[in-house]
């Protein structure tokens, strides 16, 4: 919305950055996300309470000086658990979002640019993945791959790789369909035709013209993906696919808190708020990026 003011030739990167920096919500969100990340990374240095100290004398307590976020039903400190869980949840959320979004964009844009054979074939794969019954499939994956991945990446590393692969691998289909639908429409638009007439290669058409205009739904999808992945991680641990039961994650804290919602709302509050803030900030960063990348925006 900002009118063009400066006309100094700048590199595209710098222009993009300048446009992004002008999107105040996006900048604020980036700061917020940075704080969250720093918090979970550096938190254990500042808050030295163990995550698994059981204290039956202090169960389900609300926030206090000893336990700023309160305690759960075993008297474990929720702040420590939120910090520890945040590392996993954020890592899983981002990694799974990246996998799902990237796979979705690649499949969707390839399908959207090709006609004859490739499009039906890719849509067949998409339909297949949409139809797969998730629970038996997950059990099959655990059964086939858990021990191998454990051997390759170690206990926690193996689980992390598997969770990201499973969540990302089972959730790219909506992105692919959205991208393809946008491509079908955009590839016939005047500005793409113009580019084509000017001799732009397919790759140039896609990267320079079509994809930037198809990003809106993709950004929405990937933000939703982050929260979905954080929550999906907790459901996976109920299939024995996730992290061991004593390792807290935000999704798991939220799940464990649900039966105590009436007397201990604080238990769910912080986990819910953390997921909310993550989603919120990612979304605004996404919006800012899109505005910044928009080739037709000047500024």
């Amino acid at each position: 919305m900002a009118p063009a003011r400066v006309r100094v030739p700048a590199s595209p990167m710098r222009q993009t950055w300048r446009r992004f920096a002008r999107h105040r919500l996006a900048v604020a969100s980036a700061c917020l996300l940075a704080i969250l990340m720093l918090g979970v990374i550096l938190g254990p240095l500042l808050w030295r309470v163990r995550i698994d100290d059981i204290d039956f004398a202090a169960t389900l307590q609300g926030p206090s000086a000893a336990h700023p976020f309160g305690t759960d039903d075993l008297g474990q400190d929720l702040l420590a658990r939120m910090i520890y869980g945040g590392r996993i949840s954020l890592a899983v959320g981002f990694a799974a979002m990246l996998v799902a979004t990237l796979v979705g964009i690649v499949v969707g844009s390839v399908a959207g640019m090709s006609r004859r054979l490739v499009d039906p074939a890719l849509m067949w794969v998409t339909d297949l993945f949409l139809s797969l019954p998730q629970l038996p499939l997950l059990l099959l994956i655990i059964y086939l791959f858990r021990d191998r991945l454990k051997a390759l990446f170690g206990v926690e590393g193996g689980i992390f790789v598997m969770i990201v692969a499973v969540i990302g691998g089972l959730r790219w289909m909506p992105v692919a369909r959205l991208v393809r639908a946008q491509f079908l429409s955009l590839r016939e638009k005047e500005f793409v035709e113009a580019a084509r007439a000017l001799g732009a290669s397919r790759w140039e058409q896609v990267v320079g013209h079509i994809l930037p205009n198809a990003l809106g739904p993709v950004i929405v999808a990937s933000t939703i993906e982050v929260s979905a992945a954080i929550i999906a991680e907790s459901t996976l641990s109920f299939l024995g696919l996730g992290f061991p039961p004593d390792i807290p994650t935000w999704g798991r804290i939220l799940f464990d808190a649900k039966d105590h919602l009436d007397v201990a709302p604080h238990w769910a509050l912080f986990a819910g708020a953390a997921i909310f803030l993550t989603v919120l900030s990612i979304n605004f960063i996404g919006d800012g990026l899109r505005d910044a990348l928009d080739p037709r925006r000047i500024g």
Binding site: L139, V155, S237, F238, L239, G240, P244, P245, D246
Partner: peptide, 10 residues
């Protein structure tokens, strides 16, 4: 102890 939990169906 390394805790492990398996879904009851399995």
């Amino acid at each position: 102890l390394e805790l492990k939990s398996v879904t009851a169906a399995v």
